[in-house]
């Protein structure tokens, strides 16, 4: 069973994503800010992280991504950015920093599900 970490400061969004993913064979984890997210990443080693960009607190989504990408132990971790920042350069920045996919709110939960499946398939393929 693959572990999915959902990071978003909005409880409604986390809840909606969990409902969308509830049909799959996933272990779902939640974090409401960057610092919590990083702790959970280190502790639970999720396969896929759904990462919001704009979050209150010390770390925003891009900073979390950067830390993850600079840590060789978390090399294989798949990160999908989910952001309200919809400008082209925002998504480019995310991809540059090593995101595997980028979703802009509002997004299709079914497409997100497909993206997660795809990332997991790649993980398995690589493994």
């Amino acid at each position: 069973m693959h572990k999915i970490l959902i990071v978003d400061d909005q409880a409604d969004i986390r809840r909606m994503i969990m409902v969308a993913l509830s049909g799959g064979d996933f272990e779902l984890l939640e974090a409401k800010d960057g610092v919590t997210a990083l702790e959970m990443i280190r502790e639970y080693r999720p396969d896929v992280v759904l990462l919001d960009v704009m979050m209150p607190g010390e770390l925003d989504g891009l900073q979390v991504l950067e830390i993850v990408r600079n840590d060789p132990q978390m090399e294989h971790m798949r990160v999908i950015m989910v952001s309200a920042k919809g400008q082209v350069n925002d998504s480019e920045l995310g991809m540059q920093k090593g995101a595997n996919a980028y979703f802009v709110k509002p997004f299709s939960p079914l497409l997100l599900l497909e993206a997660i499946d795809e990332q997991i398939a790649q993980l398995n393929g690589n493994a």
């Binding site: 909005q10 409604d12 969004i13 909606m16 994503i17 409902v19 969308a20 309200a84 919809g86 802009v104 709110k105 509002p106 997004f107 299709s108 939960p109």
Partner: peptide
């Protein structure tokens, strides 16, 4: 606007 719309569109 995007945040509530994400919930609405998603559900």
């Amino acid at each position: 606007l995007r945040t509530p719309m994400a919930v609405i569109l998603g559900y």
